[in-house]
Design a protein around this nucleic acid. Structure first.
Length: 951
RNA sequence: GGGCGUAUAGCUCAGCGGGAGAGCGCCUCGUUGACAUCGAGGAGGUCACAAGUUCAAUCCUUGUUACGCCCACCA
């Protein structure tokens, strides 16, 4: 016998062990012979990660599909694994070192990386156990790690091939620099946030005291300002970058400055005797209507300026070090400034490295933090009288500083301000790699669900920038590039190969230095769908399970991961004919999980809901079911724990339904043949079951998990529990042994099928029920049982039971409205019943009496005087209530019903009187409206008669 | 600035070119041997606003308003 309550806390680990011992989720486990494969690769969680709501949703949805397909007999592989998560992991171990007062540099690279591996072995991957608790049916024996030997081999293969194809290159470029982690990051890892900032306005004096006439005009060309100036006005939000200015740019059509283009002006900062001069140039970039229309060009610290500088051969002077402090290297400022002046004079731009060696930070600012330097520079310029001024409220001239919202870039992990920095980095030619990936979606070989995400995908892919793949970290795949004594680069799969290549190049053996950088973590993640299957080796797994089927992900990593997997997959994976093969045919993008008010969960807001706590409180199945039923496409999931409690109750309901069955001798595993069912109530529930099977199957196939869960919920609670089991009660307590036997077999069958239908959503409880409801053993675990198929649709049984349900519901409704005591059994008189109704009343006599609390049923007897009356089809039913009933209340009740019918009749007849409706609407719609009108009129007629009878 | 999305019951959300739905909450009643993590009944909505298309619009189109998200180099 089942316990009175389901104890998920003990059941879940027990069931998990059962699956584990049976190897139930090994690739292909439970598959039919020659079954089609079904593959999902898990989005690899970070090795540092622990389960959050996003994971819970993501993996619940994958598990639903995987369990569903496994039960359908497919050859299923759900490939698990973890990501080495470069920055995140290095950060964790660095923090541990810091606690002991150590820094990784003291330890050295090799030792530090060893420490990380140690950490990984001891504390990494806790998320796997959490995923197992969630019920994730991955093939855990195939666990992979992006830093594994095998996957590292794939990384090498890809890097070297792309390099040799010219799709990976190295160069000095302006990149996003994270001063906290001291590494370049990709533009995706930068979050632009609006912050309060200032815009300062400064005067750049013209060289040699030159002046010009500055004229401003309004839209009509009327002069609004005319004055003689000896400076050009520049606005900036980042005064510290002025030190590295290479030019001032104005728009070529800007008449205000036309007369001074080509002149030199002076950067108003630094020691007076060495103030640098820079040229005034023209470029299309400055917007004449913004600010003064003149822009200072600091090529090494701003992405726009960088492009202007490149176009105009303006030198890019780097001002900061890797910590984003002002440079403190090289010769004193005076020498460097002189060198910069020499460049201006000569008009010859030296090579990048020469320019990069020039440190234009004045001695007094060297080594300062960039923000401190900013304050000092502003103060110095103000003191010098070179700020543009305006009059304040009291009429004093004060420096012109605007308070302004500015977009500032922050590192998504470090949360410090990102600095555009000119450094040597490795890049992948994303534009070339993106082309086939764009075409694949365009041509429908890869499909996004919901489709609307394709727009986002196209927008990004079509504007893709070179992907900076090098990171100045120690944890990760080290870039397989070696440099010869003269800087020649050798990219090979091993140091030996590089040595060989170098020897051939130089004609002798030389000492090589390896590039210290590692690859962006997403570089290895991009190979996940094939590297986990053994590529570059030709493995059986690769052959069987690639292409994978569905990639399930949150929208936040479409760019980071999905797009890059598509680029890499299409580039490296080919079919027998050499055609590219997509890594997956479908990308299912699920929503973000938010708190119940719709706010993004974050630690700082303190609104994070921990899925592990929810599993502790409500059980895993309740959490999973909730996530599934709320996962409507294209919408965020707002999670309210009240919902989880509700779906835990749903589980309890199923548990109790099973207990009811047990108490009434319901038998399982008998090989019950649905076709043999004779009782209407059985044929009805089998019809409803068939409908549920079709609905749920279709919904999961279409990724409509919320529809699937809703269908299951309705079938179990509103059909099986509310009506089917209730209707069986009189049979179980009755005398008809044949009927009882059929009911016991059918109910057993229905419950067994129900467990199967619910298993993808609630795997633990259903597996438990599957095992506990049979003497001996089931032929297989539920997770390997055959997915149900529809048996039949019996229209007549359906009509009959729906009639019965209406009858009982209406009687209950009248009783409640008339305040009849629940325990009181009433007689019932039926007038105007058809032959069919009479037969139905006989069939369901016991059910009606039990469920509607009816004492006797008299067909065609004399109409009782004081009765409540209800109309059901052609029949009028009287509940004699002499002495019990408030006649006024009954008249009011009938009147209300009549009013509702009047309204409906008016609406319908109006519609049908409209010739254009009758002429244009489909015949079936017209007919349907006619039927409804006829029904309403018939019913109204009877209600009217009933009212008349009330006097 | 561009793109996308959302506005339906008190709350959280489904739905859909032809009769407004669910869960929770609320009200009334109920300890009938599966279940109070329950049962029965009930109240509650101009489907954001405006115009258009259509025989017919909550649904399609356009506009408006509000909110949310993503992308973006205005110094």
């Amino acid at each position: 016998m089942l316990e009175k309550n389901y104890d998920f806390a003990t059941a879940e680990p027990r069931i998990a062990k059962l699956w584990d011992e049976a190897d139930a989720f090994a690739a292909g486990s439970g598959a039919k012979p020659d079954a089609d494969p079904f593959t999902i690769v898990i989005p690899p969680p970070n090795v540092t990660g622990s389960l959050h709501m996003g994971h819970a949703l993501n993996n619940t949805l994958q598990d639903i599909m995987v369990r569903f397909e496994r039960m359908r007999g497919k050859n299923v592989l759900w490939q698990p694994g973890m990501d080495h998560a470069g920055i995140a992991t290095q950060m964790v171990v660095e923090r541990q070192l810091a606690e002991k007062g150590q820094h990784r540099r003291e330890l050295g690279r090799e030792k530090f990386v060893e420490k990380i591996w140690e950490w990984k072995e001891q504390s990494g991957g806790v998320i796997f156990n959490q995923l197992k608790r969630l019920g994730a049916s991955c093939d855990w024996s195939r666990e992979r790690f992006t830093m594994d030997e095998g996957l590292s081999k794939a990384v090498l293969e890809v890097f070297v091939s792309l390099y040799k194809e010219g799709l990976i290159y190295r160069g000095k470029r302006l990149v996003n620099w994270d001063p906290k982690f001291e590494t370049a990051i990709s533009d995706l890892e930068v979050e632009n946030t609006e912050v309060d900032g200032h815009m300062w306005h400064f005067k750049y004096p013209l060289a040699d005291g030159k002046t010009y006439e500055y004229v401003e005009k309004d839209a009509d060309g009327k002069v609004t300002l005319r004055e003689t100036r000896d400076y050009i006005s520049i606005a900036t939000t980042r005064p510290e970058t002025m030190l590295g200015d290479g030019a001032v740019a104005v728009h070529p059509d800007d008449e205000r400055y036309a007369s001074i283009v080509g002149e030199l002006c002076e950067i108003p900062v630094g020691p007076k005797e060495h103030r640098r001069l820079i040229p005034i140039i023209t470029d299309d970039y400055p917007d004449p209507d913004f600010g003064s229309g003149a822009v200072k060009i600091t090529g090494a610290h701003d992405f726009n300026d960088y492009m202007v500088a490149k176009r105009n051969n303006i030198p890019c002077y780097r001002l900061m070090d890797i910590k984003a402090a002002m440079r403190d290297d090289g010769a004193p400022y005076a020498e460097n400034a002189a060198q910069a002046m020499a460049i201006i004079k000569s008009g010859q731009l030296p090579d990048e490295n020469t320019v990069d060696a020039i440190n234009l930070v004045p001695d007094e600012y060297r080594g300062l933090d960039r923000f401190e330097a900013r304050n000092r520079i502003v103060a110095d310029i103000n003191a010098d009288g070179l700020a543009v001024t305006i009059k304040d409220d009291e009429g004093n001239e004060v420096p012109f500083v605007e308070n302004k919202k500015i977009m500032q870039p922050f590192g998504d992990r470090s949360h410090v301000v990102i600095e555009p920095m000119l450094t040597d980095q490795w890049f992948a030619d994303a534009e070339t790699l993106a082309k086939p990936a764009i075409a694949s979606v365009r041509e429908g070989r890869t499909n996004f669900v919901p489709k609307t995400w394709e727009n986002t995908y196209f927008h990004w892919m079509e504007n893709i920038q070179p992907w900076c793949i090098s990171r100045q970290l120690w944890w990760g795949h080290r870039i397989p590039a070696w440099y010869g004594p003269d800087g020649t680069t050798f990219v090979e799969k091993s140091e030996g190969d590089a040595q060989g290549a170098a020897e051939r190049y130089y004609g002798k053996s030389v000492e090589l230095t390896r590039d210290p950088d590692v690859l962006d973590t997403w570089f290895s993640s991009a190979l996940w769908p094939f590297s986990t299957l053994g590529w570059p080796d030709k493995t059986k797994e690769l052959d069987t399970y690639y292409q994978t089927d569905v990639l399930v992900t949150g929208l936040d990593i479409i760019f980071f991961w999905v797009a890059r997997m598509m680029m890499m997959g299409l580039h490296f994976m080919k079919d027998a004919d050499g055609n590219p093969v997509e890594p997956f045919h479908t990308v299912y993008v699920h929503a973000l999980v938010r708190d119940k008010h719709g706010a993004k969960m974050s630690k700082s807001k303190g609104n994070v809901i921990d899925p592990l706590e929810l599993m502790d409180e409500y059980g895993t199945d309740a959490l999973r079911f909730t996530l599934a039923i709320m996962a409507a496409q294209g919408r965020d999931v707002k999670l309210d724990t009240a919902r989880i409690a509700g779906y835990r109750n749903f589980g309890t309901k199923l548990w109790n339904a099973t207990r009811f069955a047990e108490m009434n001798g319901v038998v399982r595993g008998t090989g019950f043949d649905p076709e043999s069912a004779k009782l209407t109530v059985n044929r009805w529930i089998l019809t409803e079951l068939s409908r549920a099977v079709d609905d749920i199957t279709f919904a999961i196939e279409k990724f409509r998990f919320n529809d699937a869960a809703s269908s299951a919920y309705r079938f179990v609670w509103n059909q099986t529990c509310d009506w089917y089991l209730e209707l069986l009660k009189p049979i179980f307590s009755g005398e008809d042994e044949a009927a009882k036997k059929e009911a016991q077999a059918c109910a057993g069958y229905v419950l067994d099928q129900t467990y199967k239908l619910l298993h993808p959503f609630m795997p633990f409880m259903t597996e438990e029920l599957w095992a506990d409801t049979i003497e001996g053993e089931r032929p297989s675990l539920l997770c390997h049982a055959d997915w149900p198929e529809a048996v039949f649709f019996d229209r007549e049984a359906n009509d009959e039971i729906n009639w019965l349900i209406s009858l009982v519901s209406e009687i209950r409704s009248v009783r409640a409205e008339m305040n009849i005591k629940p325990g009181l059994k009433l007689p019932m008189v039926v007038i105007g019943a058809s032959e069919q109704t009479v037969a139905r009343l006989a069939t369901h006599d016991a059910a009606i009496k039990t469920l509607a609390r009816i004492e006797t049923i008299d067909v065609g007897a004399e109409v009782p005087k004081a009765s409540a009356q209800l109309v059901l089809g052609e029949t009028t039913i009287y509940l004699p209530l002499e002495g019990l009933i408030d006649l006024g209340a009954e008249v009011a009740r009938l009147g209300k019903e009549q009013g509702a019918l009047d309204k409906e009749i008016k609406q319908l007849s109006g519609k049908l009187a409209n010739e254009r409706f009758v002429a244009n609407a489909p015949a079936e719609v017209v007919q349907e409206n006619r039927d409804r009108l006829a029904n309403a009129e018939a019913k109204r007629h009877k209600i009217t008669a009933a009212l008349e009878r009330m006097g």
